[in-house]
Design a protein around this nucleic acid. Structure first.
Length: 573
DNA sequence: AAAAAAT
């Protein structure tokens, strides 16, 4: 979790351990009750044609600042004008002249009755086709907030050196109370049982609250997700939706490299948006697009997405990024590598999203190769670079073992490891190929182990089901490809096994980061043989830095490799 | 070479 769990690469989930079972069978429709259903904006016409794209910014008598949207300009027909007069979207500090739709009417502690009253008010008031986005009714608290799983080494995070560079970097905070995030956020922080911010949260929250662009690097499981969700949601509450009232114009966009990670971030966002008017949505491939569209039409202030499905939605005219003031790239180095970069440029630079400088851009990852940091500057303006610990380093809460295992011995060695594993802990086994994942799962299944597997050739339903079976402990062994390497916050993963080592060190860092999160201890075992010589040097460096035991054969190999390889270091990438 | 990401 990136949050304390939070980041994505870690996500905030870290604190409360695991996901909150917010969905069934891979679909997330019908998760909340609804006041007005969809179709609230029946008279708005098509997305593009009634706004003229960017042209919508003109004629407002002033420069448009999407980060601090002009309030109450009266320019948008319908919904925004109505909301303006209803004082619905203004800062709670400045407006209390009418029922405030953005905040609970009786403050944080009010119960569901006040929500019902609010709904009645909303229904009575908007009978003219100008109904605003549906408020999110409070789902059961227990569904959203599961127990905290902060570990015994949580306090040790304070020993990690922090680097924050850039113009006028605001001071860090020591407590969530040190920065004004509003009663809703503070209440949800309490419900999430976050007591103290993690280092990345201490620094990133004030930076984001002062509306600065940010490139943040922090170890896996150190709370990155919450580090961006909390301040971004807090800004949305404070600023109100501005002109982005219509369902299809999110104020904030979070992009993630895998569908399951997008889903996890969305679940975190729902947690922090509890009892607020902010409505998070998620779109990703492999799931019913019709359901996702219907969900969007009920209102979307914060959108979590994977790139392909988002582009599809944009091309269908279902989502406009014209008023997107906040852009977050989670697992940013992955999002900007060769596979994703064109799609990111398509979304961020070649459509209607406000340009850098007007929007606020935030990037998070546990790894961030120098070359990609340079590329990332294309999307940032006067940004602050934040690094908690060395970029790309691993948590000392993870015990890393590297063992020499020939290909032919891997299976029996794996069985030995599994047999030595406690009953209640989860084991994540990484392999390099999808075929390999299928084969290994079959093997373990035949050997009588309760296991499942996940990879990109599975149906989305199967993928989500496998993850659910694993998280819930029904299948305490998960065989996975790279799809599960980044960001997923699964509490109680005690052991990560690299049945096949990856070819680059970043992948290794993210994989083993599925354990040892938020101060908990974890174990990572990697099978090494002749096929892995490419990662020898980087792996050795990581082990030494994290004060791990280094096998003498690995040291020798690294020494030999150094003398025959001409492309050491980071010439690649 | 492989994995991921739209259909």
């Amino acid at each position: 979790m990136t949050h304390l769990s939070g980041s994505s690469t870690d996500s905030p989930a870290g604190w409360d351990g695991g996901r909150s079972n917010g969905f069934v069978n891979g679909y997330h429709d019908g998760r909340d009750g609804r006041v007005n259903g969809s179709g609230a904006f029946g008279n708005r016409g098509s997305l593009r044609s009634d706004r003229g794209g960017r042209g919508g910014f003109k004629g407002r008598g002033g420069a448009y600042n999407p980060i601090q949207p002009v309030q109450n300009t009266g320019m948008n027909v319908g919904a925004s004008a109505v909301a303006g007069t209803a004082a619905g979207w203004r800062s709670p500090e400045t407006t209390r002249t009418g029922p405030n739709l953005w905040l609970p009417t009786k403050g944080w502690n009010s119960k569901c009755q006040s929500f019902a009253l609010l709904c009645l008010f909303v229904c009575a008031r908007y009978t003219d086709g100008l109904t605003p986005p549906t408020p999110t009714p409070p789902p059961p608290r227990s569904e959203l907030f599961s127990g905290s799983n902060t570990g015994i080494n949580f306090e040790k995070y304070d020993d990690i050196p922090v680097e924050a560079t850039g113009h006028n970097c605001p001071p860090h905070i020591e407590s969530f109370h040190d920065v004004a995030m509003g009663e809703i956020i503070m209440g949800n922080i309490t419900l999430s049982r976050y007591t103290r911010p993690t280092p990345v949260q201490k620094h990133a929250i004030p930076i984001i609250k002062t509306k600065r662009d940010l490139m943040a690097c922090a170890q896996t499981g150190s709370g990155k997700t919450a580090a961006f969700l909390l301040p971004v949601l807090s800004q949305i509450y404070t600023d109100g939706p501005g002109d982005a009232l219509q369902a299809q114009y999110p104020i904030s966009l979070v992009l993630a490299p895998t569908r399951e990670l997008a889903l996890q971030i969305y679940d975190e966002a729902r947690k922090f948006a509890y009892r607020s008017r902010v409505r998070p949505c998620v779109v990703y491939g492999g799931a019913d697009i019709g359901q996702q569209i219907r969900d969007l039409e009920r209102g979307c202030h914060l959108l979590v997405a994977t790139p392909g499905r988002l582009v599809d939605m944009m091309e269908r005219g279902k989502i406009g990024l014209d008023y997107c003031s906040y852009l977050v790239l989670d697992e940013a180095d992955r999002m900007l590598d060769m596979g994703f970069e064109p799609q990111i440029r398509r979304i961020v630079e070649q459509d209607t999203m406000p340009p850098k400088g007007l929007r606020q851009t935030m990037m998070f990852s546990a790894t961030f190769p120098k070359e990609i940091q340079i590329l990332a500057r294309d999307f940032l303006e006067d940004y602050i670079f934040l690094a908690v610990g060395r970029v790309g380093s691993t948590s000392e809460n993870i015990t890393q073992k590297v063992v020499w295992v020939e290909e032919s011995d891997k299976r029996s060695f794996l069985l030995d490891l599994l047999n030595a594993t406690g009953k209640d802990s989860l084991t994540l086994v990484f392999v390099e190929t999808k075929k390999g994942a299928d084969a290994l799962e079959d093997f373990l299944y035949r050997e009588g182990y309760a296991c499942t597997s996940i990879h990109g050739d599975r149906s989305q339903r199967d993928r989500e089901e496998a993850l659910h079976q694993f998280r819930s402990g029904r299948c305490p062994i998960l065989v996975a490809t790279a799809v599960a390497a980044r960001g997923l916050d699964i509490c109680n993963v005690k052991h990560v096994i690299n049945f096949d080592l990856p070819s680059d060190i970043e992948e290794y860092v993210h994989r083993i980061g599925r354990t040892g999160r938020v101060g908990n201890l974890g174990l990572a075992t990697s099978f090494f043989n002749d096929k892995n010589s490419n990662i020898t040097k980087d792996l050795l460096d990581i082990l030494v830095e994290a004060k791990q035991e280094v096998p003498s054969w690995l040291e020798s190999l690294a020494y030999e490799h150094q003398h025959k390889s001409s492309t050491r270091g980071r010439a690649k990438r």
